[in-house]
């Protein structure tokens, strides 16, 4: 294995760990309701709503 392949493999492994962390975060129990919230909120987006504004 030359250094280029080791580098390639290293980057791949790093990205895989990032991906695994995303999966763990997305599927943790505490996140369940929040993680599914956007699919309900998007059903009603026909106009920008006053109550949605942060100010």
């Amino acid at each position: 294995m030359d250094s280029a392949s080791i580098y390639y493999l290293g980057v791949t492994l790093f990205l895989f760990i990032v991906f695994a962390a995303i999966v763990a975060r997305t599927y943790r129990k505490a996140h369940q309701a929040k993680g599914e919230e956007p699919k309900f909120r998007m059903m009603d987006d026909d106009e920008p709503k006053k109550k949605d504004r942060p100010e």
Partner: peptide, 20 residues
Amino acid sequence: PKATGVPIYSHRMSVVAFWS
């Protein structure tokens, strides 16, 4: 979901599928 009037099955699954 707009066409059927029903939300997608799983938003979290869509997020994980996106990143992979």
